[in-house]
Amino acid sequence: MGLDIRWPMGLLFLLLGAILAGYGVLSDPAIYARSLGLNVNLWWGAVLLVSGVVMVALARRARP
């Protein structure tokens, strides 16, 4: 229907992943006491980046 949903979805995941992972690197480690000592921003940002890459790859492959 005109727009392949995987494009905006992939781009959104890449952008959010970059924001989260970037914040995970820059933020004060003390804030991760609440998440049981895990830097969830960094880890989950990386997961978002990977999902973004997969989505964009799928969208590119589908393009005629």
Binding site: Y23, S27, S35, V40, N41, W44
Partner: peptide
């Protein structure tokens, strides 16, 4: 609010 630090909380 209990488990998420700023960042994940936004998500």
């Amino acid at each position: 609010g209990h488990y998420y630090p700023s960042g994940m909380l936004g998500l």
